[in-house]
């Protein structure tokens, strides 16, 4: 079985481009200023792994970390 992915948005880097929210709405939430946060504890369901990588590779600020547990 493939390793489980976890995502985290670095709040010092996020500038609210919201690309992640558009590409992977299930995995990210925006606050009142439009800055992104990972949904829940950042665990990525197996069915959404592609979306996690897509969001990560479109963040202009390189603010999204994807780790394999």
């Amino acid at each position: 079985m493939a390793a489980k992915l976890k995502i985290r948005v670095d709040q010092d880097k996020c500038q609210g481009h919201a690309r992640c929210k558009s590409l992977a709405p299930e995995l990210f939430e925006l606050d009142e200023f439009g800055n992104a946060h990972e949904t829940g504890d950042g665990s990525v369901p197996a069915s959404l792994e592609d979306k996690a990588w897509l969001a990560q590779s479109n963040c202009p600020e390189i603010a999204i970390e994807v780790t394999e547990e």
Partner: peptide
């Protein structure tokens, strides 16, 4: 697929109207 473009700027001055 991979497109970290900077059309709305980078850093603290990210365009407020990008959305």
């Amino acid at each position: 697929k991979e497109n970290r473009h900077a059309a709305f700027g980078l850093g603290i001055h990210r365009c407020v109207g990008s959305n």
